[in-house]
Design a binder for these strands. Structure first.
Length: 273
DNA sequence: AACAAGACCTGCATGC
DNA sequence: TGCATGCAGGTCTTGT
């Protein structure tokens, strides 16, 4: 579920609760996450002081005082919530961190596609999940020229290209559908046919869309919540995702749904060429 | 090698 | 009501 704007919102809402705090206890209730939680995980985090809380692509990165980084990935249904310890535990709360102000950080993830890990800060760049990451459109900049270049080396569908985290890091199914609408491009078009002008439009619209979604605190259909448990509201502003049969906000034509790689694909047959 | 499809998990909506 | 089916926002692995 959570794509770049949701992860950014989680990082921002976590920041206020975490920066400067010390972790006093760590409890793993369910180690069988997408990456299993290693046995030394709790020991490496206990007693650490928290520095910055950052985001890269769809990863939350929490810097610790001993040159380690605590990493959280939310998968599809993951949540990180900060709450008082008196709040009732829920089914699928897999890890709990206690802070020196008494609050708890809880990792909750019904489908267990998410995970949490701790790494030496200087090992982060060589960590396999990070090795393949392409530019983060909000942190690294993202040019039409570069996108045009990659697109022309591939015959994939445009939608598959943009979902590829090595091409651009942070987009998922919702925002790929939306950005292709904004750029006026059909999801099923082959990437090597992308014109330079269209690549420029995409490169311009990607950060614009992501920033706008962050302003609305992301998209909440079912699971997604920020660290305070609040929903986002960008779902009310989506143009195509999950709007099959509804009128296009630009031209009124019914939004169409296709299936691509077993995932919902949505577009306006009139506005997108 | 590049690409597409399947697998990983659980919960929920839908239809019979 | 109960059961089966299909679907869900991510990413890794397998097969063509």
């Amino acid at each position: 579920m959570p794509e770049l704007p949701e992860v950014e919102t989680v990082a921002r809402t976590l920041r206020g609760h975490l920066v400067g705090r010390r972790i006093t206890a760590v409890r793993i209730l369910e180690p069988r996450l997408r990456l299993p939680v290693p046995a030394d995980f709790a020991g490496r985090l206990a007693d650490r002081r928290i520095g910055a809380v950052r985001r890269r692509a769809k990863y939350v990165l929490i810097d610790l005082d001993d040159a380690q980084v605590w990493v959280i990935h939310l998968g599809m249904t993951g949540r990180v919530i900060v709450c008082p310890p008196t709040r009732a535990r829920e089914r699928h709360d897999h890890a709990v961190w206690t802070l020196d102000d008494g609050n708890e950080v809880r990792f909750h993830d019904p489908r267990r596609f998410g995970f949490t890990a701790v790494l030496a800060a200087n090992a982060l760049a060589d960590w396999p999940p990070f090795l393949k990451l392409g530019p983060d459109p909000l942190l690294d900049g993202f040019s039409g020229a570069a996108l045009y270049e990659v697109a022309h080396r591939s015959r994939r569908r445009l939608k598959d290209l943009l979902l590829d985290q090595s091409v651009v890091a942070g987009l998922g199914n919702i925002y790929v559908n939306e950005v292709l609408f904004r750029a006026g491009l059909r999801p099923l078009r082959r990437s090597h046919l992308l014109t330079r002008a269209a690549a420029d439009r995409l490169a311009r619209e990607i950060p614009r869309l992501l920033r706008e979604a962050i302003r609305w605190c992301g998209t909440s259909f079912s699971d997604y919540r920020d660290a305070d448990g609040n929903r986002g509201s960008f779902q009310d502003r989506l143009c195509v995702y999950q709007r099959q049969g509804l009128p296009c906000r630009t031209c009124g034509t019914a939004i169409r749904q296709a299936r691509l790689g077993n995932r919902g694909t949505f577009f306006c047959p009139r506005c997108q060429k």
